[in-house]
Design a protein around this nucleic acid. Structure first.
Length: 277
DNA sequence: AGTGAGGCCTGAAAGC
DNA sequence: TGCTTTCAGGCCTCAC
């Protein structure tokens, strides 16, 4: 489930593979993703060059030299595969195939929660996908003051707030749990109860957690050179996520206590009731 | 306005 | 064994 670190990894892999490439052909096998892929997608994209690749929140942006950007979002199950040469077999759920002078890009998404779209480069910031996004966790503007201002009037649990992309953009369900564990803050805490000091350590924890994950994702980049061509698939050594009933690593020595799973906003949250206050 | 619930979608896993 | 049900979650829409 691609959150910020996975998208960062996918973006880097795309950059390494096809930055500067000429797009030679586009084949769309299924237009019906979270949003319908625009009808003029192929016409606009073909014969342009990839000018640069970057990331906004959980979106990878592929800027072209014709005034447009291709927007990639991976929802829950979206993947990018890169093939060096034609002759490979397309798989189920390979929805978009872009052939370039440097390789072939394949977008695969079984659940179709992701999207592939096209936006004029000068109009990205006003596009509804991006106009309401909060700070990037690595942005200098993501300070304890910023976060406190976003949280201080809210009565929802802090865990739920971390999933709100208009507060901080890029965190998903896994890293919300992991970051709160790292910060020793209970996911049940009401936003407005978070102190300046806690806000500071939460920001620190978010950055540490995401950075670790990016580094781990980076290490899987090696795999994509292998014949299967898979990239961006990555597993983190989670401290709490998916570890219900296991002993909390922090408590292990002193007073063994179990990691709990609860549901917040219809999503699983994992935490240690003993060390997260 | 702020908040919560439901829906989209498929495949893996659990339940029967 | 083979079927049905449940669960996973990013993000949007709708209702209170």
């Amino acid at each position: 489930m691609p959150e910020l670190p996975e998208v960062e990894t996918i973006k880097e892999a795309m950059r390494n593979a096809i930055d500067g490439a000429l797009i030679k052909s586009v084949r769309i096998r299924n237009r019906h993703l979270r949003q319908k892929i625009p009808d003029n997608f192929e016409n606009i994209v073909c014969l342009s060059h990839v000018r640069r690749l970057y990331r906004i929140a959980k979106y990878a942006i592929m800027e072209l030299d014709n005034g447009y950007c291709i927007i990639w979002h991976f929802g829950m199950s979206g993947k990018i595969k890169i093939e060096k040469e034609s002759g490979f077999a397309l798989e189920k759920h390979d929805h978009v195939v872009i052939s370039t002078s440097k390789g072939i890009l394949i977008y695969n998404d079984p659940r179709r929660f992701g999207l592939v779209s096209l936006i004029e480069t000068t109009k990205i910031n006003e596009n509804p996908l991006f106009s309401n996004l909060g700070c990037d966790p690595f942005d200098k503007q993501f300070t304890s003051t910023y976060l406190i201002n976003k949280l201080c009037h809210k009565h929802i649990p802090i865990k739920t707030a971390l999933l709100d992309q208009s507060i901080v953009a890029g965190i998903g369900n896994i890293y919300a749990s992991e970051a709160l564990y790292e910060a020793h803050i209970s996911p049940l805490r009401e936003c407005c109860s978070i102190t300046e000091k806690e806000s500071k350590s939460l920001i620190e924890a978010i950055r540490i957690t995401l950075k670790k994950a990016i580094n781990a994702g980076g290490s899987t980049l090696h795999d994509y050179r292998q014949p299967d061509g898979n990239i961006g698939y990555f597993q983190l050594q989670h401290a709490v996520y998916g570890k219900e009933g296991e002993t909390c690593p922090r408590c292990a020595k002193k007073h063994p206590c179990k990691i709990q799973r609860i549901t917040q906003g219809g999503r699983s949250t994992y935490y240690c009731p003993h060390t997260q206050k």
